[in-house]
Design a protein around this nucleic acid. Structure first.
Lengths: 354, 354
DNA sequence: TTGTAGGCGTTATCAA
DNA sequence: TTGATAACGCCTACAA
């Protein structure tokens, strides 16, 4: 019992060959009597098939990995929450890699695919280097990338549309009469950082607002860094009446600083976050935020990967998820703070329409 | 190349036997010349060892699973964040199971251990039934339970101390002059629910305060349910001056309701949460919360499991983590709301002292 | 319907 | 130092 029964143990006990055992266990046509004996032997022994042996034979592990920078980031968390049930329903286990956005780590994961410990990989790199592209091209298992990579890379790709997203936010702010709309970004050498910076300029253009570099500050995608950036911004441009933040964490930092500075939100300064994580509904005032569809992107990635795993080779696909604006108190003027609170209260985002 | 090189491919290419290849690859003493030939063949072929075959032979997968109710719950998230790096440093991959606190699912995970797809399991069940205990006793791989199980169960066990935790909170509130301290709990048939309910009574006793059942309300460990419970509580006992909430999510719901009801926090009603998740620093006013050491418990569990995996059989151990009270604006009267904000701003809790 | 035997990719033993 | 060879546990022709 210490060493666990195998089909051999069962075969001996039932007085049949291992082939018969395997057949019965896999539901292949077998004489009734044999079936009974095998099943009861298996039952008595508490037999459980060894998945490693099975994998070696099958050449599939029924495992999928998800690699992201940091599970502590609510955006990735939202993705995991969607990916997990989809995979699970299809009989796959989920393996987690937290890479701290370290390029070497990410490449290791990609190369590790050669070890065949998973059947496929979903990955969401913060930066995409040439090495990434090479490693992706050489990957030994199907990969789905969340975040934009060039079409030629030949991997399935799920994209956000920060361009439209920022546009939605700025239109909204403009509609509220705001004209001095600042932008607080994360590192511009990241994929989202670059995209959002460009999107901001474009949105200003579309609204006929001038680009004022005093209204732009770069920090990092975290609360403390967001706070620092906003502090600098307020010093430089005291007349800002709205802050477009490149993610929700930055926006939280902005709220901290504005509160200390005695600026009312949204009366004096409206604040918009991005990613629409569940932190938006915890902050006070609750944060208006651009949803880039983390949940939908996670689910789409899982579905793309599953499809590829079941149906093999086919053309690489690109899915782009529509952004949406979740308007809450930080821009709406309703100082209630509890609008749009997820029903479960646990960070669960509701289902979204297509 | 499609099918990936194996030691056989290398052996042919290098003109040696597979045994020599294996030896070289595992660093066993081999003639210099052979080493060179094998290594260069491996290099040219881009050889990566197949971990499944290796696992079959070794009887170890270098994988560990963590099973919890819901990765979306910040408490489990905090644990994952600590568990992952510990395992990773020891060369283990992390597999995630989200069971929705479903007993059948949890039992499945325990039985699934027989498939040998992981070397060990860390699990944090919300309820512990007799079936759990049986399944734990019969588990085919080492298990560490986060959450209390009876000593006799014979598994390594990492416990929180809600008793002391609640005591800390009530002492604090009492010290602030609060005498009508209500308690908002989650389901009392869960391990934490039961423990916290008992702890509340005990703490009142110790303070010489009467137990008033009008001051106790039961809901669930979520924000919306917490809100509902607090609403009922205010109706019944308008004179409460403090709320002890059984977790942070409930406390968030409490803040929502108090705000709507026009009660100032902490002036009119002080609020204490539990678990000290990073939501406590996002809420406004920032939430005083009892830390039950999710991070330390996660890390301890990972370390216990690793030790068992490396060193095999030994007596089952019980580790209890000391609670601590993180005082913030929801009780302290400093309406700044940004005290004790994690430096990284990303939910990272600082290192704690022993 | 059933059993024998070979193979999945590694590791490890035992002679040579 | 090296090479055959036998496992690890399962699946599956192929033969009986």
């Amino acid at each position: 019992m210490t060493e666990g029964p195998t089909i051999n143990t069962i075969a001996r006990r039932a007085g049949v060959s291992i082939a018969s055992v395997s057949r019965v266990l896999n539901g292949l046509p077998t004489r009734e009597e044999t079936v009974r004996r095998v099943l009861s032997a298996a039952e008595e022994l508490g037999y459980v098939p060894n998945s490693v042996a099975r994998s070696l034979k099958n050449r599939r592990t029924n495992q999928v990995a998800f690699a992201m920078a940091d599970i502590g980031n609510p955006v990735y968390l939202a993705m995991v929450r969607e990916i997990q049930p989809v995979l699970r329903a299809a009989g796959y286990r989920l393996l987690l890699h937290s890479t701290d956005a370290d390029v070497a780590d990410e490449l290791d994961v990609l190369r590790g695919l050669g070890e065949r410990y998973v059947d496929g990989l979903i990955m969401s790199p913060l930066r995409v280097t040439d090495e990434h592209l090479r490693a992706l091209a050489a990957a030994r298992a199907p990969v789905v990338v969340i975040g934009s990579v060039p079409e030629e890379t030949g991997v399935d790709n799920v994209r956000a549309d920060s361009r439209t997203g920022v546009r939605l936010a700025l239109d909204h702010l403009y509609g509220l009469g705001r004209r001095r709309i600042a932008f607080v970004n994360g590192p511009p050498d990241t994929v989202p950082g670059a995209a959002r910076a460009a999107a901001y300029r474009e949105a200003l253009d579309a609204l006929g607002l001038p680009y004022d570099e005093n209204l732009v500050e770069v920090g990092d995608f975290y609360r403390a860094e967001g706070a620092t950036a906003v502090r600098a911004l307020l010093d430089r441009a005291a007349d800002v009446d709205a802050l477009m933040c490149a993610n929700d964490l930055i926006a939280l930092g902005a709220l901290d600083v504005l509160r200390r500075a005695g600026r009312r939100v949204p009366e004096d300064v409206a604040v918009v976050g991005m990613d629409d994580t569940y932190l938006a509904g915890v902050a006070w005032p609750a944060l208006t935020s651009v949803s880039l569809g983390s949940e939908r992107r996670g689910r789409a990635a899982a579905e793309l990967l599953l499809d590829r795993l079941e149906n093999g080779q086919r053309q690489a696909r690109v899915v782009t998820v529509e952004p949406r604006l979740a308007v809450r108190a930080s821009t709406a003027g309703v100082r209630d703070g509890t609008d749009d609170v997820p029903g479960a209260g646990e960070g669960t985002e509701g289902e979204e329409s297509p």
